[in-house]
């Protein structure tokens, strides 16, 4: 090999070596989660521990499936996350479109408002918000969760949608729609939204994941067992049975993490391009 080739090969090896170290750092906790969930219970009490189970033992999955209403928790999480996504998309695409196309007098104010709401300490509005929701009769309801998560998601979602409309939807399409006699709302609904599916998907996953993972508000607001989402379900399980065994906790973790990761894996391409649109523009 020529010296140049050697140098190139060496460069590539070093490149992948560094990335492999980062990948190991990122993946190791997941490896430990899956490995622990498949160990026979007695193998978790080894010190130093073994890295892989001596044989695969699925009994932890069986046990938590029987102990916990996991299907119900996941159903709750899924319902709340889906509704959150829809509500956030409706609000964010309307507002994002307005900010992208219309020079309203509220434009600067609303941009400042949306950015600022992302920066307030999340615990700050909590106390009054809790009493507000309580007096509206929305504590211990799905609506209380959905409304809250959707509105938490909208500042960032609006920014994503606004960037998408500005960057990816050409103004000429709308002009020709207007010439064909559509109203402005009609142009938005019939022309702009149908070609904005990638932007909507990106924003939608963002809202979905926010809702699926949220813990703090749900822990304060819910006392009703029937409405518990997965995050609260596992938290209570871990607290209640601290002796329940690490295998069971890990099995629950695997089950509850999988949906968000799978969804992300399928749709990550859209999400990442949506996330980065905001970064470059500041």
């Amino acid at each position: 090999m020529s010296p140049k080739r050697v140098q190139q090969t060496f460069g590539a090896l070093r490149h992948y070596a560094v990335l492999a170290v980062v990948a190991w750092f990122v993946l190791f906790p997941y490896f430990w989660m899956v490995s622990s969930s498949l160990k026979p219970a007695e193998e978790l009490m080894l010190s130093p521990p073994n890295w892989l189970p001596s044989h695969l033992d699925f009994s932890a999955y069986q046990q938590v499936w029987d102990l916990l209403p996991l299907l119900k928790y996941m159903g709750n999480s899924l319902f709340v996350a889906a509704m959150t996504t829809i509500l956030a998309l409706v609000l964010a695409s309307c507002a994002g479109y307005s900010l992208s196309r219309y020079k309203t007098r509220l434009r600067k104010f609303s941009i400042a408002l949306f950015v600022f709401t992302q920066l307030i300490p999340s615990v700050l509005p909590f106390i009054s918000y809790y009493f507000l929701m309580h007096s509206l009769g929305l504590t211990n309801t799905y609506a209380g969760l959905i409304l809250t998560y959707a509105i938490w998601a909208i500042p960032f979602s609006i920014m994503m949608m606004q960037n998408y409309f500005t960057a990816a939807v050409p103004g000429e399409l709308e002009e020709s729609g207007m010439i064909d006699g559509l109203s402005r709302i009609g142009v938005f609904l019939r022309i702009v939204l149908p070609i904005s599916v990638p932007g909507l998907v990106a924003t939608g996953i963002f809202a979905f994941i926010l809702s699926w993972n949220e813990f703090m508000w749900a822990s304060v607001m819910l006392t009703n067992n029937d409405l518990k989402p997965v995050s609260i379900g596992i938290f209570d399980f871990v607290g209640q049975y601290s002796s329940a065994g690490v295998t069971n906790m890990m099995a629950t973790s695997v089950i509850s993490t999988a949906p968000a990761i799978i969804l992300f894996g399928i749709l990550q391409r859209y999400l990442i391009s949506g996330l980065t649109a905001g970064a470059v523009k500041g």
């Binding site: 409706v90 609000l91 964010a92 309307c94 507002a95 479109y97 307005s98 900010l99 196309r101 219309y102 020079k103 309203t104 509220l106 609303s110 408002l113 949306f114 709401t117 307030i120 700050l124 509005p125 909590f126 106390i127 009054s128 918000y129 507000l132 409304l147 809250t148 959707a150 509105i151 938490w152 909208i154 500042p155 609006i158 402005r184 709302i185 938005f188």
Partner: peptide
């Protein structure tokens, strides 16, 4: 149209973020 599309999000933010923060 510009205002109509923007209002719901502003109202929602005032309700969830601004009012409780001031309170």
């Amino acid at each position: 149209t510009g205002y109509i599309l923007l209002f719901p999000a502003i109202l929602a933010s005032l309700f969830v973020h601004v009012y409780p923060t001031v309170d």
